[in-house]
Design a binder for these strands. Structure first.
Lengths: 145, 145
DNA sequence: GTTTTTATTGCAAATGATTTGCAATAATTT
DNA sequence: AAATTATTGCAAATCATTTGCAATAAAAAC
């Protein structure tokens, strides 16, 4: 059983919530589908094993997970694409993204210089920085030919 | 007359386009309203001087400017906010943003380390990076009290 | 284990942002 | 000044997401 599911169950319990089948499956799918799925993609995936699942349940669960800090929602700006949110089972602080504008694949990365950018900005402006989002857009090796 | 208006006029001419009153006013407003306005805000502003302007004209003009690389559209992920695009008369490459999640104010900044992050990533992955988007979220000095 | 309570679901309808089809309008060309 | 056609305004469509509400099903109380 994944860490996300356990953590979510605990939070749920602590406020009189209920761990339903739908929620279990949505949480599972977030761990299985690693690739920043959209609500629709999660819905399609979970529907295979539970055809009665409703899309609004997916949205409700994701938004709840987001509020609890267990999931982060981001909006990648693909050039001509629709503007759908994509969800990610990790904290937004500890990794960043490269997006291939051709094949839409996503590569995660981290770089300690980003923390430095954040610190320098804080020092210069006295702003308190809570989170940093870095997205690189370009072409992956496959799509460069 | 602003540089944006001149550049846009030239591009327009070069492909049999027409510099209309509406387009002029929308371009002007992009220079006057510096603060990453939404299509709605641009519409409200220009409507004051031209009450017949239509919102879809604003969208069409903005998308066209985006395609020509004269404007960039971004979607800032304000926590509970609606997901509206915000527009910016500058190239997305040469500056980045801090957003105060409380008062929604935007501070632009740049930092040469960001170019370094980009270069390191390219070297390590052989991805070609076209543009970089960095958004810091947090609290501005005023909202920290 | 059955009944009660109420959080959660499914459904359908609402929403908000953005886009599109089309006839009317107005820049530019002739 | 007339002809051409890019652009507009309008209304309706679309897409992603949210919401109200009655039905359902966890968990609690018996």
């Amino acid at each position: 059983m994944g860490a996300l599911l356990e953590e979510a169950t605990e939070i749920l319990r602590s406020r009189g919530g209920r761990m339903t089948n739908q929620r279990k499956r949505i949480l599972e799918s977030l761990e299985l589908l690693g690739s920043h799925p959209s609500a629709d993609e999660i819905f399609a995936f979970v529907s295979q094993s539970d055809p009665t699942l409703n899309l609004s349940t997916v949205y409700r669960t994701l938004r709840w997970l987001e509020q609890e800090g267990l999931v982060s929602a981001r909006h990648f700006h693909f050039d001509e694409d629709r503007r759908t949110d994509r969800f990610d089972a990790a904290s937004p602080i500890d990794h960043h993204h490269f997006i291939c504008t051709e094949c839409k694949s996503v590569i995660e990365f981290d770089n300690r210089l980003i923390g430095e950018v954040k610190n320098q900005f804080s020092r210069q402006t006295n702003c308190w920085v809570q989170s940093v989002s870095v997205v690189l857009y370009g072409l992956c090796p496959n799509c460069q030919k």
